[in-house]
Each structure stands twice: as structure tokens, then as C-alpha cells.
């Protein structure tokens, strides 16, 4: 039995600390994934809270031997999209994102650099479709393999590759439009 499966068994026995241990490696990943999709930290935390609740509720139905990581990411992704659908605020995501930038313990130069990076990421996410965004984030932000991303999204590996390729082509031409003279520097 794998370590992860043992921890899952412990969590199902009612050991709360095992549940926390099981989720700890993904705490940043879940939060960032939800944040990139919604563009709002507070909402991202709500989504994660909701997702953690679902993971705990359906943990008994999780098939042992399978990847807990992809199963959990799938729940987070679906919860995020449900949240957006419920609130119908796709068009407000970027606006909200601009207003919720919070920088802690950083000086002016670092703050400006962070702002610049965040604006670049926002502009990338803005031009991508939902599927392209999901594939791009799972692969380049969370480091999932193509196979894992296909399991999270419930589609073929071919489809993941197609969306990823399209996303990168879009990002490249986006930056070439913004920085036409120095396209080689991105």
C-alpha cells in the first residue's frame, strides 16, 4: 500500500490530522489554481474551502491506487468553474484582479516588479479560453504532466497537447504585439 493510501485510510478512520497531512502538499497549488481562475484571493479561499469539504465528503469513494493529486485538482477546478458559473462574473475577473493586488513586506522596487509580473500573468490569462487556461495552469503553474492534466480535465492527452500548443502560440503572439522590437526577449 502506498503512503498516500495509508494516510487516506487513516483520514477515513476519523483521524483529522491525517486529513490535514494528506492535503498539505497541495495547499498552495489549490489556492493558486482557484486564484488564477477567479482572479480574487478571497473567492479563491472560499472555493478551496468548498473543495476541501467535497474532498473530505467523497474521500471514501476515491479509488485506491489512483492518483489523489489529479482527483483533488479535478475537484478544485470543477468547484472554481461552478463558482464562476454561479456568479456569472467572467467579465469581471480581470477588473477584480486589478483591485485585489496585495503585497506584503516588500519594498517599492520589489512591489513594482511583482506588480509587473502579475499584470503579465493577468494579460496572458485574459486572452486564453477556459480550456487553454486550465491546461496552461495545470502544466506550467502546477507542474502536472500531460497525462495528469488529461485526468484532471477528463479529456485525452492529445486534446491537452492541442490546447497547450494553442495557448503558447497565443501567448507568444500576444507578447510579440506588445514588444514588437524585442520579441526575442519575450
Amino acid at each position: 500500500m502506498r503512503d498516500e493510501d495509508k494516510i487516506i485510510e487513516d483520514a477515513l478512520q476519523g483521524n483529522d490530522s491525517s486529513y490535514e497531512l494528506l492535503l498539505r502538499p497541495y495547499r498552495q497549488g489549490f489556492l493558486n489554481m482557484a486564484y488564477r481562475i477567479t482572479g480574487n484571493r478571497e473567492e479563491a479561499e472560499e472555493i478551496c474551502q468548498d473543495a476541501l469539504l467535497k474532498i473530505f465528503k467523497y474521500l471514501s469513494s476515491f479509488k485506491r491506487g489512483r492518483s489523489f493529486r489529479t482527483w483533488a485538482y479535478r475537484i478544485v477546478m470543477n468547484t472554481s468553474y461552478d463558482f464562476l458559473r454561479e456568479k456569472k462574473k467572467f467579465e469581471q475577473v480581470i477588473e477584480t484582479q486589478k483591485k485585489t493586488i496585495v503585497y506584503e513586506n516588500s519594498d517599492a522596487e520589489e512591489r513594482m516588479l511583482k506588480r509587473e509580473i502579475r499584470e503579465k500573468i493577468q494579460s496572458i490569462l485574459y486572452i486564453l479560453t477556459l480550456k487553454e487556461k486550465a491546461v496552461f495552469l495545470l502544466r506550467d503553474s502546477e507542474g502536472l504532466s500531460v497525462k495528469e492534466a488529461s485526468m484532471v480535465l477528463g479529456c485525452s492527452q492529445m486534446s491537452v497537447r492541442t490546447h497547450l500548443s494553442r495557448a503558447r502560440q497565443k501567448i507568444k503572439s500576444h507578447f510579440e504585439k506588445i514588444y514588437p522590437m524585442k520579441s526575442r526577449e519575450v
Binding site: N32, K114, I171, F175
Partner: peptide, 16 residues
Amino acid sequence: LVQETRKWLAEDRMDW
């Protein structure tokens, strides 16, 4: 492009 975007995403990560 891949290197840069991955770097940005890693630098702009938030935690609980």
C-alpha cells in the same frame, strides 16, 4: 517563453 512564463507563475505564488 516557456521558461519566462513558468518563472513568473512561480514568483507570483501565494500561500495560506
